[in-house]
């Protein structure tokens, strides 16, 4: 695979995050380069999800700086991350249960829609044309993820693996430049995992989307990621290419326990 990895687009410097007396993250620095697949791994409770939440503005670190495309980022709210083209999926599926697959994925394009509610109520002006234009884009995502047959199904009725795929679809609909995936393969069987890997690699390959993912399946992580960050107890203990990380003493200790 010959892909171009670009410059650093996200640079985190000395990030510390506390919840009261609990230190979730301590002095963590790493960066993400354009078009790469960057994995964050670590044992349970290492602070991986907190890390993603810091990146897209759900949590606000007490210390440290975040540079997005070379500019320092001020405190931001989650919806601003969407405007900066950062999309994400969640560890526990966070789909909108009462809505159909199509509507769920349409919400991913919300920030791109300009019509206001009066136009919507009267179905007038931009309301209709926008709806159709975005439907076309959403159908492309649906085709890409091979979920045409369930587009009108309420997501609550779908099996777990498909729900995960719809959630990826919702994130992709925003045409993000950076995609954060929180355990995209948790709880899946081998076949579903293979599908998901294929989709992640395709997204990266076809759209050039930068991907930051958290995953516990080491086989998957080592296979698909370009660089890996390892966290343990909120501290960074390893960073580098999969081969490097695999042979890192500290990482082995964290995963297998110190006594071995």
């Amino acid at each position: 695979m010959s892909k171009k990895i670009g410059d650093v687009i996200l640079d985190l410097q000395n990030i510390s995050l506390r919840f009261g007396g609990v230190k979730a993250l301590t002095d963590i620095s790493f960066n993400v380069r354009e078009h790469e697949i960057r994995a964050i791994i670590g044992p349970n409770g290492a602070g991986k999800s907190s890390m993603l939440n810091v990146i897209n503005g759900v949590y606000h670190p007490q210390e440290g700086k975040i540079f997005w495309r070379g500019k320092e980022r001020k405190r931001m709210e989650p919806h601003m991350a969407a405007q900066q083209n950062i999309a994400r999926t969640f560890q526990n599926i966070a789909l909108f249960k009462g809505m159909s697959v199509l509507d769920n994925i349409m919400t991913g394009r919300m920030t791109k829609m300009k019509a206001n509610f009066i136009e919507h109520a009267l179905w007038f002006g931009r309301a209709k044309s926008e709806e159709l234009a975005h439907r076309r884009k959403v159908e492309e995502v649906i085709d890409f993820l091979e979920i045409q047959h369930i587009r009108k199904t309420p997501v609550g009725r779908l099996p777990y693996g498909l729900q995960k795929r719809v959630e990826l679809g919702r994130a992709l609909a925003a045409e993000p430049s950076m995609l954060l995936l929180d355990e995209p393969m948790a709880g899946m069987n081998v076949e579903e995992k293979q599908d998901m890997c294929r989709f992640i690699l395709d997204v990266n390959d076809q759209f050039g989307t930068t991907i930051v993912l958290i995953e516990h399946d080491m086989g998957v992580v080592m296979d698909i990621s370009d660089r890996v960050v390892v966290l343990d107890y909120g501290k960074k203990i390893g960073d580098g290419e999969p081969e490097e990380v695999k042979n890192n003493e500290e990482v082995i200790k964290a995963y297998l326990g110190a006594g071995h």
């Binding site: 897209n56 759900v58 709210e77 989650p78 919806h79 991350a81 969407a82 999309a87 994400r88 969640f90 966070a94 789909l95 909108f96 249960k97 009462g98 809505m99 509507d103 349409m106 919400t107 991913g108 394009r109 919300m110 920030t111 829609m113 019509a115 509610f117 919507h120 109520a121 179905w123 309301a127 926008e130 709806e131 919702r170 925003a174």
Partner: peptide, 20 residues
């Protein structure tokens, strides 16, 4: 329309809605 979808998104999962 997208107004209604925004409402339903907030109803079903507000954290995910704000991240979108």
């Amino acid at each position: 329309s997208s107004t209604g979808r925004a409402w339903m998104a907030v109803r079903d999962m507000d954290v995910a809605a704000s991240v979108i």
